[in-house]
Design a protein around this nucleic acid. Sequence first.
DNA 1: AGGTATGTTAATTG
DNA 2: GCAATTAACATACC
Length: 261
Amino acid sequence: MPELPDVEVERRYLQSTALHRPVAEVHVDRERILDGTTPQALGRRLNGRRFQEARRHGKHLFVGTDDESWLHLHFGMTGTLQFRERDEVEPHARARFVFEDGASLQFVNPRLLGGVSVVPSIERFVREHDLGPDVLELTREEFGELVAGRRGMIKTTLMDQSTMAGIGNVYSDEILYHEGIHPKLGTDALDDDALKSLHARTVEVLETAVDAQVDVERMPDDWLLPRREEGADCPRCGGEIVKLDVSGRSAYLCPSCQPAP
DNA sequence: AGGTATGTTAATTG
DNA sequence: GCAATTAACATACC
């Protein structure tokens, strides 16, 4: 489930497992996931190096090594990291970073929509891929100005990575659900108070998901996410959850909690 | 078997 | 230039 909270959980997982061990081998299962590099070049780049820290920008993960470049990991629609003390290969492990002590960090990406690359700097990557600021780095004022500067539907605006980076289809639904805002509401319909409230809700939802380690079992009782399907009972009013097409993506909402514009 | 899926990008249309 | 729409990508799941 790789939106901001999912990637943040992966970042912390990597930090707590895979740092400071010299890389001995890199294995790539499917070259399609590599962007601008080859298995051989990736191996030459990483062998003997240690992972020093992991940073995140939006849905993108960056792993710093002993030199100045960064390993970039992106999951696309599916995927996780798996650390193993022994190098037991996980299903759909597309890249495996095997350490000298025999442990491995595995980039698991079943649908191959993710990617692995080496980038010279995070700032440059963000610029070249036209990513907006990370959502959790924004002040209330910055958030309000960015949203107010757009003309489309609010759900689409929240998901637009060039406006702000990190929110995807699932968490945009969650944020709008708690805010009682219909996903198709025009962004220009939000006044200053509504933008201020939307910002607070956005931060709250994303941080709550991280605190729950993106485990649906640990999410609050009044969350949409664990029952995000057509016909489910709205946890707040008992009404029926419906699915709507918004800009080609499926939006789930409660029509009585989120009245149509 | 067919529809759907948490992301991104390119092409097209208004 | 901006916004909306559609298709494509590759695979798993129901």
